[in-house]
Design a protein around this nucleic acid. Structure first.
Length: 491
DNA sequence: TTTTGAGTTGTTCGA
DNA sequence: GTCGAACAACTCAAA
């Protein structure tokens, strides 16, 4: 009886809309939670917007991930009694259409604390306001609001350690919200299918490796976090730099699309550290990595053009070279440096690369090859499933030396030493560069130094089955140091 | 306001 | 093999 009258009342009220942006999940989703609490029918809407100039277009790999993530979200919502309405077009126009179709009085969404997405959201809010619709916006994608974390002269902090101390001093972020048990659904509005968005490759189908590698979606993200905290967090501090060991959380693409929130990660990690004191060190280190994501997005908040402009203006005079052949060799994993080639091939196949190796490949491109970091950033943007608008450009600038708290110019990675130090048995290289698999560990990171007999036994011919180094390390290093020195004398 | 100390992730060289 | 110093100077944050 009660239920029935409740239903009648609910059906009578106008629906509300939840605009899904980056938070492709149902738990700890402030906008969805608030919409569900209103007891009105909920229309969940995703707008694929390639037209609004405020948004950076997705890369290929993130596009593929988005398609999988939308399917997972739609399944979650259907299990709760609602559907996901997918539309395409400029978000302000599309949401206006959906409001008119549904007669909704309120649109809820989670904030994305970046100037582009915020500018778009402001246009949406204005368009909705013009037709008498209320917008309700909730903080979501960061632990701390960048506007609340200011240094002198109102600027954002540009050194990581004080930044992270300030974030920690803010105390725990809000506790994660539960997923709504069920949603009062509004019936049948037209929707595109995920296939209609054309986010997935057909010919050639380059996504096979991505499908093999990843389980996409909120449930997979939660499972991965639980598994990491249960097992790998214990050794994380010691092993996180080892690409040959599965020591990292691999949560970054899930975070990128908000399949899991930073608050959920924070609280789960703190809980695990309290349960297992032996994990505390690893977990602190892990949370620091969450801090780098936070730091990068705060930088992006203050510097919307982070992906295109040097944070240190002195770098505008840097003598980058143009070398399309070298860039292509780097992209394809044919530089002749095994650790670099392994990383670039891992990237192409899986849409990801171990963090340590990202630094090595980036250093080779920007320093040995003197190729503008923006080319590397764009390649990563297109090929990484976790390509993040903050982390990706901030990290590239960090390696190149033009960024915040950046690596000093004289820090040029030696790809042989890095390989020997972090992939000591050559396991990682053997996996991704199979033509070198039969070389012994002592030679696998510098095959050109092997004796003819050793190469013959391993079936390797330098220059034929595997390239000679694209540039001699010592020579490349000296050239890089000279280029960086020119910045200081040029003004 | 001025001063002071510090700043994710390295490499090389020479003792 | 191991160890410490040099590799620069600057910007940043906080006392």
């Amino acid at each position: 009886m009660n239920e029935r009258s409740q239903d009648t009342k609910t059906m009578a009220s106008n629906p509300v809309i939840v605009w899904f942006r980056e938070s492709l999940r149902v738990s700890d989703h402030p906008a969805l939670h608030a919409a569900a609490s209103s007891n009105a029918p909920v229309v969940c809407c995703f707008v694929y917007d390639q037209q609004s100039p405020e948004l950076r277009p997705l890369g290929g790999a993130t596009g593929w991930w988005l398609a999988q993530s939308l399917r997972a979200l739609r399944a979650e919502l259907r299990a709760m009694g609602a559907d996901l309405i997918i539309r395409r077009g400029p978000a302000d126009e599309v949401l206006g259409d959906v409001v008119r179709e549904t007669n909704a009085g309120t649109v809820f969404w989670n904030d994305v604390a970046q100037s582009g997405p915020r500018a778009l959201a402001e246009r949406v809010e204005a368009a909705l306001g013009a037709i008498g619709t209320v917008s309700r916006i909730f903080p979501d994608d960061l632990l701390v609001d960048p506007a609340q974390l200011r240094g002198k002269e109102g600027r954002g902090l540009r050194v990581f350690t004080p930044f992270w101390k300030r974030v920690l001093a803010c105390g725990d972020p809000p506790k994660p919200l539960p997923a709504p048990a069920r949603l009062a659904s509004a019936p049948g509005f037209s929707s595109l299918s995920v296939d209609d968005l054309g986010l997935e490759p057909t010919r050639p189908d380059w996504a096979g490796g991505l499908r093999e590698t990843w389980q996409v979606g909120e449930r997979a993200a939660q499972a991965r976090l639980a598994e990491f905290l249960d097992r790998a967090a214990r050794t994380y501090a010691a092993d996180r730099d080892r690409p040959d060991i599965a020591a990292t959380s691999r949560l970054s693409p899930h975070l990128r699309f908000g399949e899991i929130s930073p608050r959920q990660i924070w609280h789960a990690a703190r809980f695990a550290a309290a349960e297992h004191p032996a994990f505390a060190k690893g977990i602190d280190k892990f949370l620091t990595e969450l801090g780098w994501r936070e730091f990068s997005r705060h930088l992006l908040y203050d510097h919307p053009d982070l992906a295109t402009r040097n944070l240190q203006p002195s770098f505008d005079a840097f003598p980058w070279t143009r070398d399309d052949a070298a860039l292509a060799a780097w992209q394809r994993g044919r530089t002749g440096y095994p650790i670099v080639d392994a990383g670039m091939r891992e990237l192409w196949h899986t849409g990801s690369m171990h963090n340590r190796v990202r630094m090595v490949v980036a250093s080779l491109l920007a320093k040995h090859l003197l190729i503008d970091w923006r080319h590397g950033e764009q390649w990563f943007w297109d090929t990484l499933v976790d390509a993040d608008p903050g982390s990706n450009p901030a990290s590239w600038q960090w390696v190149a030396g033009s960024g915040a708290d950046a690596a000093p110019y004289f820090r040029v990675f030696n790809p042989v030493l890095q390989g020997e130090k972090f992939d000591p048995d050559g396991t990682y290289v053997r996996r991704w560069v199979p033509e070198l698999a039969r070389l012994p560990a002592g030679l696998i990171h510098q095959p050109w130094a092997a004796k003819p007999l050793e190469l013959a036994e391993a079936g390797v011919t330098i220059g034929r089955s595997y390239p000679a180094p694209i540039i001699d390390h010592k020579q490349g290093r000296e050239r890089a140091l000279a280029a960086y020195a020119s910045l200081r004398t040029s003004d």
